[in-house]
């Protein structure tokens, strides 16, 4: 049996809207084995992004536990969580969220600044990540000189450059045309199959979800019956 990389147990997440508590996740349980490509789907407000944020260590649950790679991340302090994210998680956002003033290679290098790698090693790792996403020739370009698909590939290079075990992607194709979206999804699939990266992707798009090995449906803060991708 494959060891679970992510284990979410009896998680409750509650926000406060003024004095009114709003429960977004209700006693949610989810297990994701290492090496899986999971698509999180569901209607708006179902808690997909909230769940993704909890698994990625961007937020903490109100109740319950979140275990990633054997570590109770819900118990980590803010500083510990930041260091944990730097070591273990790569993030891909819908709107790429690249630094507009930095070149593609400088954007990709950002996570490596937090490591003890030498400048030469960082350059080598950046070059390898850009090559993997097919953007070696665009390494000196700034984000506004790249197409949406290319920017998202730079964001993926940034997410994988520190060799994290887990990639969390929030609507990575939500802002792309069909062709660029397919390129990005193929790339994610490749990272999952060839490099064994565990990927959790939030998406609204059933076509995007088809690239995943498992689809998890959320509805009103709870899991709906799972469906296997075709």
């Amino acid at each position: 049996m494959v060891e679970p990389l992510v284990s979410v147990n009896k998680v409750v997440k509650r926000y406060w809207r003024g004095k009114q508590p709003v429960e977004v996740l209700h006693n949610l349980d989810l297990t994701i084995p290492a090496g899986e490509f999971v698509a999180l789907m569901g209607p708006s407000g179902s808690g997909k992004t909230t769940l993704l944020n909890l698994i990625g260590g961007l937020d903490k649950p109100t109740q319950g536990e979140v275990v990633v790679g054997g570590e109770r991340i819900d118990r980590l302090s803010g500083g510990q969580l930041a260091k944990w994210r730097a070591r273990h998680v790569g993030f891909v956002f819908q709107f790429y969220n690249l630094m507009p003033t930095l070149s593609a290679e400088a954007n990709v290098e950002l996570p490596l600044l937090l490591t003890n790698l030498s400048g030469k090693q960082r350059k080598a790792n950046v070059a390898a990540a850009l090559e993997l996403v097919g953007l070696t020739d665009r390494r000196k370009h700034k984000p506004n000189e790249l197409s949406g698909g290319q920017q998202q590939r730079v964001a993926i290079a940034r997410a994988i450059v520190a060799d994290p075990t887990l990639l969390v992607c929030d609507e990575p194709t939500g802002d792309l045309d069909r062709e660029s979206a397919e390129e990005v999804l193929t790339l994610l699939q490749l990272l999952n199959r060839e490099q064994g990266k565990t990927i959790i992707m939030v998406t609204h798009d059933p076509k995007a979800a088809e690239f995943a090995s498992r689809i998890v449906q959320l509805d009103k803060g709870a899991l709906a019956p799972e469906a296997q991708a075709a």
């Binding site: 990625g56 803010g78 260091k83």
Partner: peptide
């Protein structure tokens, strides 16, 4: 703000 949030997401600590 969004750029700073991304830096934090990537692992920059509050102090960083």
């Amino acid at each position: 703000i969004p750029e700073l949030a991304v830096l934090k997401t990537l692992g920059f600590t509050d102090g960083g």
